[in-house]
Design a binder for these strands. Sequence first.
DNA 1: TCATTTATGGACGATTCGTCCACTAGTGAC
DNA 2: GTCACTAGTGGACGAATCGTCCATAAATGA
Lengths: 205, 205
Amino acid sequence: MSEQGVAVRQGRGRRPAAEVRQAVLTAAGELLFETGLTGITFEKVAQRAGASKMTLYKWWPSPGALALEAYFAAVKASLAFPDTGDVERDLTSQLHAFVHLITEQSGGRVIAELVGAAQTDPDLASAFAESYTRPRRQLAVDTFVRAQERGQIRADVDPEVLVDQLWGACYHRLLLPDQPLTLAFADALIRNLMLGIRGPASPHS
Amino acid sequence: MSEQGVAVRQGRGRRPAAEVRQAVLTAAGELLFETGLTGITFEKVAQRAGASKMTLYKWWPSPGALALEAYFAAVKASLAFPDTGDVERDLTSQLHAFVHLITEQSGGRVIAELVGAAQTDPDLASAFAESYTRPRRQLAVDTFVRAQERGQIRADVDPEVLVDQLWGACYHRLLLPDQPLTLAFADALIRNLMLGIRGPASPHS
DNA sequence: TCATTTATGGACGATTCGTCCACTAGTGAC
DNA sequence: GTCACTAGTGGACGAATCGTCCATAAATGA
């Protein structure tokens, strides 16, 4: 564990690349959780890491890219999905874990700010899609496909749509907050999809 | 970049407040759709509107707040929901309209950038929630409540959750793009919820 | 050992930001 | 209609930040 605060380093000349890289990522991660994405500038990170600004400009295309890498280096986001053979159970535990992640302290705020910054930074957007959105979607889709093969979910349902109706709904409450993001909400999401919401008076198709 | 749209105005002294306000909102709206939210700074807007920077600082707390107001002034977002007595039809037409809005040219980009900026600007966030998120959610919830009274949707379903599973899913594809945001997607959202996705081998009844 | 590579501290111009000023035209009371 | 008050205008200013560029010196690898 690194010391919180500014790492003052004296001396000119070269430092081992691996050492610098680690110091920069650590400093960026600390700043990210302390001050949010706004606190991430090459200048501040370089100062805290005891590194030269020029080095950061050389290694990362933008502060956002650095923040993204620092975030993943810091949380080592566990992407593992359970597979017990029961979709509903697997989805519940996975969604609960997700809700915990983005509800706890700065976890959700950091993700929200990264998503937010990606809206005006194409490079960050593609980096985020590549290293976060796409792999996570794929794991969820795989879960649905397995459930379809087991007959637990109708075969004519598009798994990609389900991802948006479960995780997307959670992101909605994170990014456009109005209603609370709770475990009960996650349960309701799954229940609505599994059982359907149609009432007795609804016209059949 | 060209000088298109710059309103050159000469003369010192005072101008009527209403005139200035209109000029500022118009200029901000143009800039918003031309260059995105990034193009909205007090300096640039003031120059284009032929207004003084100080006036803008006096009237709006931040460029984001100005952009938000300019956006609504520009699009006069129609919030009207149809009510034909058939939920599924009403939801479909409303979701289609929404998909059109955020799919067409800059409409979606502007909203995405506003939501994005709100992640790091608390003032903009609350303004956005107040004038956009909350009223829109309410209208959707009202639709669901009416449907429940008609027996078209089960009474034990939380309308707020449905909002996230329909509109939230669309925002998900807008803000964390990976899969296309189409009318067919909107239809699939509604179908999944109305019918349910459970297959014959699902362990729960 | 020694030539090469590369990070360091520091400094630089350019840009943008928020504030302040003197000036003057619009506004409203009388 | 007059006149004092209000409020927007152009311009300028310091502060802060950005991206870039040095000369220097430590690490690297042959």
